[in-house]
Every structure is written in structure tokens, then in C-alpha cells.
Amino acid sequence: MKEPAFLAIAHLWVGCIRIVAGYIALAAPKGKTLHRAAGTCFFVTMILLCASGLWLSLARDILFTVYLSWLAFHAVVTGWATAASRHSFARVITYLSPLSSLTMMAGAVIGAFRAASAPDGMLNGLPPGAFLAIAGIACLISGLDGLFIFRSFHHGARRTARHGWRMGFSMFLASGIFFFGNTRFLPEALHHPVFLATPVLLVVCLTAWFAIRARFQTRA
């Protein structure tokens, strides 16, 4: 697959917009205009980011980031579908979500076997365990998708918390790739591990805060 010359730069700038929109959406009061506007911007840019990331990964034959793009796409789309559960299309996405995550798990297991069968025991410079980790995460997400469908689809608190952590998880994946995989675009003075890790850890903290706040506010 050919890589368009502009795609890498567009991918970078979309990623920058996504970071700003994601932090605002996580920090803003739930359900307010600012949260909705930032969340919509985050959702759109995440879809574009996953699509461009998938294209770049296929063009460069990097199977591992194919699965990361798929995982981030699955998280953000199911997160949106959870918040928009009144729409029939969103419900279809929710009911199909276990199939997507199980397919992702199977693909990651295949990647692990390819890595194990390679002469150096590596694929894309990674051992089989890296692909098995993706498979394990996909398996866990598939189980959570199934539980949501059969046990708590209409439960407001769980639905809001699921929306928050799915969006946060997709942002966590994208932020990790952005800050640790694109250091060549950052000034050398900012290559310190503390600077690179802080935005990623901030996503984890904001996501946890959002999910906990959502559960208590919905019950109030």
C-alpha cells in the first residue's frame, strides 16, 4: 500500500488537535456544552487518527500498530455508541462490539505466532509477548462488551462510566503512541521521559476521575 506524502504530517496535526480536545472533554463538566463540543471534536479526530494510523501501519508493514489502531478505534466507537444508545445505529454497534474485539484478539494471536516463527523470534522488532498482550486486552474488552449487553445496557451509571473509560482508553493509546512514537517531531529538550510520560499519566488520572464522578453523579 502506497503512503501519500501528506499523510504523516496530517496524522501529526490531527493528533495535536485530538490531544487538546480530549483533555477538555475529560476535564469539562459532564453533559455541558463544552464537554459535548470537545467530545465531538475528540471523536471525529480520533476516527481520523485511527484511519490514518491504520493506513500508515499497512503502508509501512507494521502489524503491531495495526492492532493498536484497531484497539483505539474499537474503544472510541463503542464509547460513542454507549453515550448515543438511543439511536438504532449506536445499538447495532454495541451488539456487534464483541465480534470486533474477538476478531482483534484472533488477529493479535496470529501476530504472536508470526513473531514466534520468525528467524529472530521478533515481528516489527517485538517479541510474541507484545502481541499476546494485545490479544489479552482484546479478550478482556470482549468480555466487558458482552456483560454490558446482557446485564447493564440500560443502567445509566454504568453506561456513563463505560462511555468515559472507553473514550479515555482510546486517548491513552493515542497519547502513548503520539508522545513516545513521534519524539522526532518534538524539540530535543522535551525528550525527557518525565515530560513524555506526564501527559499519558494525566489521561489515566482524568479518565479515572471521570468514571468515578459519573457513577456518583448519576446515582445522585
Rank of each mutant, 00 (worst) to 15 (best):
K2L: 11
K2E: 13
K2S: 12
I9R: 12
H11W: 09
G15E: 07
C16M: 12
C16Q: 08
I17T: 13
R18G: 15
V20P: 04
Y23I: 12
A25L: 05
L26P: 05
A27K: 07
K32W: 13
T33K: 15
L34Q: 05
H35S: 00
H35I: 02
A37I: 15
A38Y: 00
T40R: 15
F42G: 05
F42E: 11
F43P: 00
I47Q: 06
L48H: 04
C50Y: 03
G53I: 04
L56Q: 15
A59S: 15
D61S: 10
L63K: 10
A72L: 08
A72V: 04
A75W: 00
T78M: 08
G79M: 06
W80E: 03
A81W: 02
S85A: 15
S85I: 15
H87D: 11
R91G: 10
Y95E: 07
Y95C: 06
L96V: 14
S97A: 13
P98D: 10
I110W: 07
I110H: 09
G111D: 03
F113Q: 15
F113V: 14
R114C: 03
A116E: 13
A116L: 10
A116S: 14
L123V: 01
L132S: 05
A133P: 02
I134H: 00
L140R: 06
I141K: 02
S142I: 00
G143H: 01
L144N: 05
D145W: 00
G146M: 12
R151M: 11
R151E: 14
H154T: 14
H155C: 06
G156H: 10
G156C: 03
R162G: 04
G164M: 07
W165P: 09
G168P: 04
F169R: 09
S170L: 04
M171E: 13
M171D: 11
L173P: 06
F179M: 07
N182I: 00
T183H: 07
T183P: 01
T183G: 07
R184Q: 13
F185N: 15
P187H: 10
E188T: 14
L190R: 05
H191G: 13
L196M: 09
A197L: 12
A197W: 04
T198D: 00
L201Q: 07
V203M: 04
V203W: 02
V204R: 02
T207S: 08
T207K: 03
A208K: 02
A214M: 00
R215C: 04
R215W: 04
T218V: 08
A220M: 11
